[in-house]
Amino acid sequence: MWPPKGNHMGLPLQRKIMEQIIFYILAAATVIATVFSITERHAVHAIVYLVTSFFALAVIFYLLGAPLVAVFEVIIYAGAIMVLFMFVIMMLDLGHPEKVGTPGIRDWWPALVLAGVVFAAIVTIVAAATGSPAAGQAIGVREFALVLFQRYGVAIEIISMQLLFALVGALYLGRRQGKGEKP
């Protein structure tokens, strides 16, 4: 808890405090960018806010000792998936906020009820919690790769087949329709 009492990972205390401050700043940046993203009516602006949020989250992953996941977050999420969204939005010309209807109160209340339930659960957990940061450790690329390819080899094969199926499905859905031909 704040202020940190011990020196868990053998880090100098000053560096640990600095990493904690960076974590909380990045957490605030992530949450604020996500809030802007989901309340934005212009789809392109929403995507840009989401990319900001993903960059902050990637640095949080790095601070949590997962450099490989941080790199994949930037390359695949912010680099590939968001660009795919942007491509579809621009291809279909959806960047017109005046054509988008504003959600009314009928759309809001189920979301607010569910959000209230989850926030009540979080508050209950926080009220019951005690303790200080445990001694976690960073995981290097070598250990990550060993676990990935020794223990989860079958999962890698399944994921590769899943990506292949997604490719075939997207090709089938995206092809031009011929003359009178049913898709």
Binding site: A27, T34, V126, G131, P133
Partner: peptide, 15 residues
């Protein structure tokens, strides 16, 4: 670990 696991889980819950 730089922050308690609870804080990470709270951030995940909010997101």
């Amino acid at each position: 670990m730089i922050v308690p696991l609870l804080h990470v889980l709270i951030l995940a819950g909010i997101l």
